[in-house]
Nucleic acid binder design. Structure first.
Lengths: 192, 192
DNA sequence: TCGGCTTGCTGAGCAACGGTCAACAAGCTA
DNA sequence: TAGCTTGTTGACCGTTGCTCAGCAAGCCGA
């Protein structure tokens, strides 16, 4: 083959993570094999292990990338009007979350599922993302950040994830009603 | 060694499932290896594959056994007084669920986690249990069993699982308040 | 007691996968 | 051109899920 193209380390890393992101929706995290990734990248397994010393490191990197995409999508656009206030900002995030799941359903389900499943490293990445979200959520709501509220918000995330995942598969109510319901439950959990 | 004790097929099956249940809390489902189970049972791997043709079958059997334990614990005791009415019956189940998580925290977390994680067979067992619970829940509440309500109850389960799991690790409110809060959210989701 | 049948049970062995290691080679610099 | 750095590879190893041919323990009819 006369020697494959030689890439910079950053290039290669990005390529491998990208392949992981593409594979994520169709392949359960645990069934994602190093061989397959290397094959798609056109490199040897050894090289993959050079960049990610262990399979978990690789999964964690892919998960982190997915989390980063979600995170970037949830944050309010800098130019978005009328979203300064606490309540509106939260409505905007809920709206964008539903939109995210609508658009990238497969990927998002794989992300959540992979996070919930065994691997502690991957779970940790997911936990970080959730923690950051809780922080932002409580801040925009103008509420103090104590342990009790954190628990409630995290449980609310679990509720939201589950409900929205079901809803996109079989919408049993108008989109507006779903958003109102989510907001209603959140307000009930965190009265002002 | 002079030939190990020869057990009946049912005995052996029960023993192997029992070992799986004991290993479940300390070992993530995916890290549970056939070798380890066989070693603990004092048999060869081959025999385990004789009873459970694939590793997934074995995991599914163990998960089913765990689900059966949970299920049996959640159902109202036949002799329990004052739990005939819909509302009280639900309160009783919530109460017993919290008690279950309090007592078998590790096992239950492993059960939920293993169910959420990749393996479709295991997930199916878990889904069955949830479905049965939804059915019972809606019936005892005296509400019709439509798709929308099923979604809401399932999402409520996700909420409850997450909140209770956090709460047993760090009780941020009295037990009574937790139960009242759960009941409150449920009532809001399913108004009568 | 003997032969034969069922069936619980084992050991050798295979393929796939995660991971290691020594060494090659592409490109830059002196 | 020599030499260094570093992206890259192939050969190799241990573990693990899984198969298969066959052993042996108990039961039955003669």
């Amino acid at each position: 083959m006369s020697g494959r193209a030689r890439r910079s380390a950053d290039d290669r890393r990005a390529q491998l993570v990208q392949i992981g992101l593409e594979l994520l929706p169709t392949t359960p995290v645990q069934e994602l094999t190093i061989d397959e990734v290397a094959r798609r990248a056109g490199i040897s397994r050894s090289l993959l292990f050079h960049y990610f010393p262990t399979k978990r490191d690789y999964y964690a990197a892919v998960t982190r990338a997915a989390a980063e995409l979600l995170w970037a999508h949830l944050l309010p656009r800098p130019g978005a009007a009328g979203e300064g206030a606490g309540g509106n900002a939260v409505d905007g995030m809920l709206d964008r979350y539903v939109g995210w799941v609508e658009t990238f359903r497969e990927t998002h389900l794989a992300f959540v599922r992979g996070a919930a499943g065994g691997d502690p490293w991957v779970a940790e990445v997911y936990a970080e993302t959730r923690d950051r979200l809780v922080e932002v959520g409580l801040r925009t709501l103008g509420l103090p950040d104590d342990t009790r509220r954190r628990q409630l918000v995290l449980a609310f995330f679990a509720f939201t994830e589950d409900l929205v995942a079901q809803w996109v598969l079989e919408p049993t109510m108008p989109r507006d009603e779903l958003l109102a319901l989510l907001r209603d439950v959140l307000d009930r959990l965190l009265p002002r």
